[in-house]
Computed example of a mutant assay.
Amino acid sequence: MKILLATIILAGILSCQSSKPEFRSVSVDKFQHLIADTSVIRLDVRTAKEFAEGHIPNAINIDVLQPDFLQKALSSLPRKHTIAVNCRSGKRSKKAAEMLAKKGYKVVELDTGFNGWTAEGKEQTKE
């Protein structure tokens, strides 16, 4: 009887779990710490113009606002690596992070975006 009750409770708890793919939103300092690992792929999802004006060093650029974003991301981002996503303020990167998480990627997102990164005086590069 106890086993049956425990099974019912566990099933109830699991059924309440969100099936929404998850990603982590992190602070600038945590993001910087995470991307220090060279196996983490840095993905900037802003426009090409925004990216050229300044970006986190060693980031690649795939514009999340383009209709082929997911196709480009799936063809160029290996699933075995963590993807560290940023945009300008954090809105577009959350959209991109959710899309990638739905496809099975482990994703970390810079909560305050590139604006937060530069406001804290972190390194950037320009093209």
Rank of each mutant, 00 (worst) to 15 (best):
G113Y: 00
G116N: 08
S25A: 14
A52G: 04
C87S: 11
C16H: 06
L14H: 10
T38R: 09
L5D: 02
C87N: 07
K91G: 08
R88H: 14
E98P: 02
G116F: 03
S27E: 13
P67E: 13
S15C: 14
S19N: 07
L14S: 06
A11I: 11
Q66D: 14
L77D: 12
K30N: 07
L65D: 02
G116P: 06
D63M: 00
E53G: 05
K122A: 06
T7V: 09
N61T: 02
D44Y: 07
Q32P: 01
Q71N: 12
V108G: 11
L65G: 02
G116E: 12
F51Q: 00
D29M: 11
L43G: 04
K2A: 11
A96T: 03
K103P: 02
S19R: 07
H55P: 03
V45M: 01
D68V: 01
I3N: 10
Q71A: 07
D29Y: 04
H55M: 07
E127K: 15
S76F: 04
L5I: 12
V108C: 06
T47A: 04
E120K: 15
C16T: 08
L110D: 05
I62S: 05
G121M: 10
A48Q: 08
K126L: 10
F51M: 03
S27Q: 08
L14M: 09
I35T: 09
L5W: 04
E120Y: 04
K20D: 08
A101T: 05
I56W: 00
I41H: 00
N115E: 15
E120R: 13
V45H: 02
G116R: 08
